[in-house]
Design a binder for these strands. Structure first.
Lengths: 211, 211
DNA sequence: TAGATTTTGTGACGTTTTTCACAAGTGGCG
DNA sequence: CGCCACTTGTGAAAAACGTCACAAAATCTA
């Protein structure tokens, strides 16, 4: 039951939640830390330590009740409710994300789409009409939007961010390959595919020359 | 000059490389660890420590020669050459990635596209014709493909992976929300947007209730 | 050349994160 | 009921990672 939680713990909790959904789908009622460990790439002790940051949810000798632990994790991760999201940038990436079923399934509901291209403004995606950037503040305000998915070119990203921050946004999933300047308290997650590809080429190159 | 390199170091090296490109674009010839630190979110000591894993590239009193360090980092990260990549999955995500200019700019060349949908097979994207999954092995073999970008539904991912592994692929950038089973030596990077969104909702939720 | 100034590379140190090991619960069974 | 098999929760140990501080270059100036 501690205060400061490692980012790696949070990533693993996400994974445990996914595993629990699978296990529930298989009709199982309980699960041990060891099985959760096997499904993520971690150890039973790590699973227990991760969970112990937030309380004690298991029964000795028995394990965890799948449904209960799943509920607890959803609470901990803040996904026991719907998050209202704005998609900013209706290009290729934005389009792919908009169609990505996992988001809505997991409680992230896109309630606004914004793009700067006059050709796109006014077009409809699903039930939504694409809005111009000038409306970002009012959209965030009137629709109660808390998260922004930022899928715009690098040079536009900071300016859009400033507007969203000004309107009181709470978190940003950033696809632009720059480091956004935001107030210290604000949550930003960067998606950086080039970095991940470079991690691959490093691993492969290293392996060849190293051992 | 050590052996085991932390993953966080690799991520930072990617960032340094990006910064060096910017700095080179500004016409500068040298840069200090302090300036590189300011451009990433790290410290001068961390920059020097990261680099020291691979050798000593700077000059005391002067800093690092931008062009040289950039070359060294490209070497270290294995991006001083072209990587031949297959895109497997020609859906929304695949399409967005295929159009994403950063990949080719950074030396990742898509030389094959595969999809299982009979409607898509035979269609052309740019200069490439979409191939059926049966051809994965021969494509990897004949085209000298080392990396796969896997953008297929979860239930197809493992099977495709097995074929690619069998054909001698070296690394996988995985967009499917499952943990792929691969031989121990094989490099896999998972792109998991739901996990990143959950990191955001955790951070926001936590902040509200915590301090 | 000597001294002032800058900045690296790195050992020592401190913090964070993971792993280990085991006491303490829990249910099942004879 | 008493014992056995199982599994959690958690301090303590170990490992990994990051920070600090400074000697050792290197340049510049006069």
């Amino acid at each position: 039951m501690s205060r400061r939680i490692p980012a790696s713990t949070i990533r693993r909790l996400s994974h445990y939640l996914r595993s629990l959904e699978d296990i529930e789908g298989e009709g199982r009622e309980t699960v041990s830390s060891e099985e959760l460990a096997d499904r993520g790439q971690t150890t039973a002790a790590q699973v227990r330590k991760d969970l112990s940051h937030f309380g004690s949810f298991g029964k000795r000798g028995l394990g965890y009740r799948v449904e209960e632990l799943r509920g607890r994790l959803r609470q901990i991760l803040g996904v026991d409710r719907v998050w209202r999201v704005a998609l900013i940038g209706a290009g290729r990436i934005g389009s792919a994300l908009f169609e990505y079923p996992a988001f809505e399934l997991r409680g992230y509901e896109c309630v606004a789409i914004v793009d700067a291209d006059p050709e796109k403004i006014g077009a409809t995606w699903g039930a939504l009409r694409i809005r111009p950037p000038e409306e970002i503040e009012s959209l965030i305000d009137t629709l109660g939007i808390e998260l922004v998915i930022l899928a715009v070119p690098a040079q536009a990203a900071q300016q859009i961010t400033d507007r969203a921050v000004h309107a009181g946004i709470k978190g940003i999933l950033n696809f632009a390959p720059i480091r956004l300047k935001v107030p210290a308290h604000l949550a930003v997650e960067d998606v950086n595919l080039v970095m991940q590809l470079e991690a691959l080429s490093f691993a492969i190159t290293q392996r060849g020359s190293g051992d």
